[in-house]
Design a protein around this nucleic acid. Structure first.
Length: 496
RNA sequence: GGCCCGAUGGUCAAGUGGUCAAGACGGGGGCCUCUCACGCCCCAAUCGGGAGUUCGACUCUCCCUCGGGUCACCA
């Protein structure tokens, strides 16, 4: 029997007035980009309206518990700046915020529904998979017509059962979604879904409605995969006589499958990147957040770069897209590069140093100076080590590198140039960019050749690489006088 | 398969009856230049198809096609 007083007490705790949204993940240990986007939109709706953002953990599936999974959620939300006002860790007026800690209550609400004829006990036992036959129609549930007396008696006798929602058989149900508009479904299409499982725990669908109501959620934001369940939720709200929240269904995030070339939904199973994978891969959190915000939502103007507070300021449901969006790693990379370029040189140097040190162990090389060469040429941090390894030690290289058409260089000419510039550099009174640049351009002028004809061979000799971050002068300064001269002599020996 | 939803360049998208159909990524070309990158300039590329409604459809309606979702004691 439902404890009327307890239910009334719960009702009395529901906050009124003001927007309240919630992110309600199930702890799977994996926060993929689609989840992150849902969390972000949910947070943005709340913050835009000056409302509350709540975190609730939906862990009613005892068979799928994953250790540490909740931590991934906390960590991701925190790093992304999606702070919550209420949740398992910070508490709040309508707790607890973990569904398994609320277990008793769902059953009571289900009993209310049974009493009022909106639900019934079903003693049929688990349905085995029938998909193989291709037949999805299960027909009417025999328990639906069972008398209350028999149902009560069997329940009292300890027989195992589930509680199912009793769907109307006639007419249709229309609900409203903020992004999709009105959606109508024939009631006969609706299955008598399970509300309470035989283990006594509620299904996601039921717990969701109860919790959203008891927590005073005004905007229910979730993935579009729940769109087809929405009429059932609506019927539940009506059965209880509760106010229906604003539904906001977000289309899914797709990814282009490597093998088939087709778009498909992102999933852990296919190894699609989670938030943490992206960070691991050298992406910056604000860039990821910015990109994800624009994946399936458009602010309308031409601007694309927005900070989180700016997003909260301008976020508007009007721009939310109805169709699925394909996650584009190239565009994310572009956003990341934009964010890297926008960093202060100091911040960039600090962030880049560990990556530089992965390949440059030589203590004589100053990572800050290397970083300065890198900032405009880095799209993501993980590509740094391979770009700068030549600073650590001159790699073995092919003399053919000295041949460059555009710079009008070849092997004999390069040898001559190196021989000519070696004494000049040995005699340089100072070893800084200004001095070296002046010295080398004068040398080029004296020899009546283009700057590139001097610079190119020098850069090759200094780096052993066809492509380098920074030019000959910059590299020489990072390497220092002794090492630079040593590498030039090495180049002369190689070409001789 | 039933039901629900969707459809503007390769991708993200603006657009809500009258536009030479924005912009961005990616692609191509050029400039700058001590390689590469940055930066700047230019180019190619889109309204899935067919019927209507209308003086006029990317915009409205219907059909087709295609795409997505869903049909669990999973969330």
């Amino acid at each position: 029997m439902p404890d009327q007083k307890r239910l009334e007490e719960l009702e009395s705790r529901i906050p009124r007035g003001g927007v309240r949204t919630r992110f309600a993940p199930s702890p799977t240990g994996y926060m993929h980009v689609g989840n992150l986007r849902t969390a972000l939109y949910t947070w943005l709706i709340a913050r835009h309206a000056g409302g509350k953002f709540i975190l609730r953990i939906e862990d009613t599936d005892q068979g799928r518990l994953v250790d540490g999974a909740v931590d991934v959620i906390y960590r991701t939300l925190e790093q992304c700046g999606l702070d919550h006002d209420e949740g398992p860790d910070v508490g709040g007026p309508v707790g607890p915020y973990i569904q398994t800690e609320r277990r008793g209550l769902y059953r009571e609400y289900a009993e209310v529904l049974v009493e009022n004829g909106f639900a019934y006990r079903c003693f049929c036992g688990k349905t085995e998979s029938e998909e193989d036959s291709g037949d999805f129609d299960r027909g009417p549930d025999p328990c639906r017509a069972m008398s209350r007396e028999e149902s009560d008696a069997r329940a009292r006798a300890g027989e195992s059962y589930v509680i199912r929602q009793k769907m109307p058989t006639q007419g249709s149900t229309t609900f409203h979604d903020a992004v999709y508009g009105d959606i109508t479904v024939e009631n006969k299409e609706l299955e008598d879904q399970i509300l309470i499982k035989s283990d006594g725990l509620p299904t996601y669908n039921f717990a969701n409605v109860i919790d959203d109501h008891l927590m005073g959620i005004t905007h229910v934001v979730r993935g579009a995969e729940y769109l087809s369940s929405a009429p059932k939720y609506d019927l539940l709200y009506r059965a209880f006589g509760w106010e229906v929240p604003t539904y906001v269904h977000c289309s899914s995030v797709m990814v282009t499958d490597r093998e088939t070339g087709q778009a498909r939904k992102m999933s852990k199973r296919h190894g699609d990147p989670s938030y943490e994978d992206l960070i691991q891969d050298g992406y910056l959190t604000p860039a990821v957040v910015n990109y994800v915000a624009l994946l399936g939502w458009s602010p309308g103007g031409e601007r694309e770069i927005f900070s989180l507070p700016e997003l909260a300021e301008i976020f508007d449901l009007h721009g939310v897209s109805k169709s699925p969006a394909v996650f584009d790693m190239d565009k994310l990379t572009y956003f990341n590069a934009e964010y890297i370029r926008a960093m202060t040189p100091e911040d960039f140097a600090a962030a880049a140093e560990p990556y530089i040190r992965q390949s440059v162990k030589n203590p004589a090389i100053d990572p800050a100076r290397v970083a300065a060469l890198l900032q405009q040429r880095t799209e993501k941090f993980t590509q740094i080590p391979e770009k700068v390894d030549f600073f650590d030690a001159l790699p073995a290289y092919d003399p053919q590198l000295y041949v460059h058409k555009k710079s009008k260089t070849d092997i004999p000419g390069s040898l001559e140039t190196l021989k000519a510039l070696l004494p000049a550099l040995e005699a340089a009174e100072r070893w800084d960019e200004e001095t070296l640049l002046a010295l080398l351009t004068r040398l080029a002028a004296d020899r009546q050749v283009k700057n590139a004809q001097v610079m190119y061979p020098l850069r090759i000799a200094l780096s052993g690489r066809a492509v380098t971050p920074g030019g000959a002068v910059e590299i020489a300064c990072v390497l220092g006088r002794d090492e630079s001269l040593r590498r030039i002599r090495e180049g002369i020996r190689l070409l001789s």
